[in-house]
Amino acid sequence: MKATFIAVVSAVVVSAGAAVAEFPERDLQGIIQWGAGGSTDVVMRAVTPHAEEILGRSVVMTNRTGGAGAIATRFVASQRADGYTLLMGAENPQTYKVMGLGDMDYSDFTPITILARGVPVIVANTDAPFDDFAGMIEYVQANPGQIRVGSTGPGGVPSVVTAMLESAVELPMTAVPYDGDGPAQTALMGGAVQVLPAVMGAAIENIRAGRVKPIVLIDNQRNDLLPDVPAVTETHPELEKFLPWGPFFGIFVAKDTPEEAVAKLREAFGTSAEQEGFRQLMDDRGFVHMNITGEEAEDFLTRFQSVTSWLVYDAGVAKNSPEDFGIARP
């Protein structure tokens, strides 16, 4: 206890030591959109310590959950745009407009870095009566409504992937909603659902252990971690226009943050994200390491929003039309 205390105090004191009057003059605050232990939380807690060293200040991280990240997003937007409050989030705000969760998205923020992107993969329970995508389509079409597919609510990764597939083939499955991809994977292993569009990072260990079987990768190329799993574009090239697509993690500050602060933050987090340890972490978990910023990041965000918004809208799960917000069709 005492040791912890001394260590913490000295960590605070030491990390607080830097030249005055230059950004950052005081500790920063990182607002994480998702709960402790989730993938966003873990990625942010992994990338931040090294950035703290470069900044010379601590970044106090807080989880502000709720409303699919909307609570945290609104909070950061309401703070002074001085670069001291960071939004550590996932892809969700890009669908708020069409899902009716407010009129905010990442265009109200300046990206510091988009760290990594996940690759979706369709996984199935080991007892499912098919082993590949063609077999799955055949079985589902022959038994409409019998196959249960896990979902994480409208706008979540599974619902977008399902919408994407349904734009090419008819797949009459029953969607059973879960609180997140963790509980949905548990349900998949227990047989409560037979199919789940998951993020590769979250499914890879279960695939390796043979607890679930991979069906098809939702990407335009195969992945080194699962070289035997075909990419969906091999059989359905018409999906090419949506891909690559995947949920991402990024760090943002409010739009009007001074250039100096943005530059300093980009340097700190950009360097930290290039570290060998962090890259390794992303690779092992099947995330595509990106670490992009500036215009490149903004283009990525715009494209993501356009693909996703139109997919969920065409699938009939969106509340508003992307047209109302001037989101162009991909």
């Binding site: 402790a36 989730g38 873990v42 992994a46 890879i204 279960n206 252990a209 390794q280 092992d284 978990r285």
Partner: peptide
């Protein structure tokens, strides 16, 4: 234990059925 999983993940162990 959800946070323990995060900790194992950060420290380069891959929590999962193979652990």
């Amino acid at each position: 234990t959800a946070i323990f999983i995060g900790a194992l993940f950060i420290h380069g162990l891959n929590p999962g059925p193979m652990l």
